[in-house]
């Protein structure tokens, strides 16, 4: 389970202190699939980064009682001068996974062909997203944090990813942030809205989407 205790995050800017998250309290249980809806600039990406521990909250704390992935999205987590295969080896080492199996799995799942042996900087953005998902699935986290990106990968990959996540339904939790209700609907079973730095949970996803669209 993941618990947010009074989590706030603010950034220092030239216009003064900007508070992006304002005292969030929430609990995400194992296996839960939560779609977090929010407009552009609502703080969705910041929220994922804080939950993942990439950035630390300004005040409050994040309690993690399950393994949590890095935020999966357009960028980050990979070394662009290294090949896809070398990235897989590195991820295997830091997360204590068997190296050969991890490389095989990532090659298979990311489906990059010859590009798997080339530096990530030569990849298209779709390929980078595929590699990122494949790496995270290879580690086998209890909870996946996903930042819109699913909608960007091509439909063939989206279907495979959907299948892979569904297969883990019982044990893997998913926190998906998006501003597109349809994306949330296809992956999640409950919803939340992030607005003005505050998070509101809804057990009924349709209710969350209705409120989000009405606002």
């Amino acid at each position: 389970m993941i618990r947010l205790h009074d989590v706030s995050k603010s950034y220092r800017t030239h216009l003064g202190q900007r508070e992006v998250l304002r005292g969030l309290n929430a609990t995400f249980a194992p296996g839960e699939k939560v779609g977090i809806l929010g407009r552009n600039g609502a703080g969705k990406t910041t929220l994922l980064r804080v939950i993942a521990g990439v950035e630390l909250p300004s005040t409050g704390r994040v309690e993690r009682r399950m393994t949590v992935s890095w935020p999966l999205g357009f960028a980050g987590a990979m070394h662009y001068n290294m090949t896809g295969a070398d990235n897989a080896r590195f991820i295997a080492r830091i997360y204590a996974k068997p190296v050969a199996e991890t490389v095989d799995f990532v090659r298979e799942f990311a489906d990059l062909g010859a590009y798997f042996r080339l530096p990530v900087k030569t990849y298209s953005s779709g390929m980078i997203i595929r590699l990122g998902f494949a790496l995270s699935l290879a580690v086998d986290f209890d909870c996946y944090l996903v930042d819109e990106a699913i909608a960007v990968g091509d439909s063939r990959f989206a279907a495979r990813y959907h299948a892979a996540l569904t297969e883990r339904q019982a044990r893997s939790a998913l926190l998906l942030v998006s501003h597109i209700p349809d994306v949330v609907r296809s992956y999640c079973s409950s919803g939340a809205i992030l607005d003005n730095g505050r998070l509101t949970r809804y057990d009924d996803l349709d209710e969350a989407i209705a409120i989000y669209q009405a606002a």
Partner: peptide, 10 residues
Amino acid sequence: SQSLLYHRCI
């Protein structure tokens, strides 16, 4: 080294 910091264990 920012991309490394996506991994909480680092």
